[in-house]
Design a protein around this nucleic acid. Structure first.
Lengths: 211, 211
DNA sequence: GATTTTACTGAACACTGTTTATTAAATTTA
DNA sequence: TAAATTTAATAAACAGTGTTCAGTAAAATC
């Protein structure tokens, strides 16, 4: 089936080409400004062609959403070298917030917008494996911490949700710009990076005290 | 100038009518599905008339955004009866998350979307008074707590940002639906309310230990 | 060489936010 | 009261959006 293979490969090449163009435009101009016509124009196909490979715009961005999670899980991989689970959970917080800072558009796509998640809601045979993977890394680290005697008396799921909520809160208030508006009025801090860092440091100090 | 007054009143009546219709449609169908044509149709005016009273769609929703903050500040007012500042900060967290739960669309408009905030960014003479007000209530409570010996050694701004980030994280992961997706896979909890409550309880337990 | 399958597109549908020239009504001036 | 002016409101257009579908060329099969 050499011909079948080649055809299949060509088909997937085009799908990859569409996603490459979609990603470029998304990072250049954001979600709203990236139209199906825009993507089609860049790859020199008609808009209708995209619909032969993706159900709709949400499905295109769901693919990018998954790519973002693969990037995040890769970033988490580097944490395996951190032996102490408590140090690892601190490092995870930094990796998470840094990821959001360095890839604000991806972060919004992954954790703020719910358009890409609608694909999951409409097709219930699909699962949010990527999100689950990322959460499991956190949960396992929390459990490991508790085995060493940290965070005594906390239910691990609840504690993990709390840690996630906190770093997500910092990341999303930062990337949406709301944190910066309050900074301007309430603090003498020079820039948004300082506020983010200060808030993260306060969080680390907080969990240090639960040690 | 009785006539001037009447004309002025009529002008503001129409502005209020526009906002009323916009609010209704927004709560019925969400932000994206509320179009200027939709609003105009409901009040039986032409779309162009709205532009005599508001610069653009963002300005319409900025007005609703402000209304949301007035609602939140009103909800915070009831906390003045809580004498102990530590109990008050706990109650604030609950009021905040309950507000987000009961008014998810308003919450998104106020703390997640940045379209309404663009009005502030374009017209720098305007200030985000509403957001500042809400944050000040939190900051003052934190300072009061510290006067009573709680949260020793924390810088009050940083601690306030951290508390805000945490409750915002819980509220926004809940209203966006991301929390519910992880719940389905990772926990045996019946519904999203249980997860939200459990995470909030864990947060309260956490700050109790810093007392 | 004729037929079927595949890949692709042009054009349309029903929307969107926004602007502008024009009209109709109300008010002011003569 | 009649003419002139100001105000309020709109119809129509512009340039875009996501999406669908009938139709067309090219490739593969018979």
């Amino acid at each position: 089936m050499g011909i079948e293979d080649r055809k299949q490969r060509h088909k997937e090449d085009l799908k990859e080409t569409i996603l490459k163009a979609a990603k470029e435009l998304f990072l250049e101009k954001g979600y709203e400004a990236t139209s199906m016509r825009n993507i089609a124009e860049r790859i020199e196909y008609s808009p209708a062609t995209i619909y032969l490979h993706f159900k709709d715009k949400n499905e295109v961005f769901y693919a990018l959403h998954k790519e973002g999670f693969r990037m995040l899980v890769t970033a988490f991989k580097t944490l395996e070298t951190v032996a102490d689970p408590f140090e690892r959970i601190k490092a995870m917080g930094h990796v998470y917030v840094n990821f959001a800072t360095e890839n604000p558009d991806f972060y919004q796509l992954m954790f703020v917008m719910h358009e890409p998640m609608e694909v999951l809601e409409l097709d219930l045979t699909l699962c949010w494996d990527e999100g689950d993977d990322a959460f499991r890394v956190l949960l396992e680290t929390v459990i490991e911490c508790q085995k060493k005697g940290y965070f005594k008396g906390f239910e691990p799921n609840g504690f993990s949700f709390l840690v996630w909520s906190t770093v997500h809160g910092i990341a999303s208030l930062r990337t949406s710009g709301h944190l910066d508006h309050v900074r301007q009025v309430k603090t003498q801090m020079a820039d948004i990076n300082a506020v983010t860092k200060h808030t993260m440091d306060t969080f680390i100090e907080m969990i240090e005290r639960l040690k």
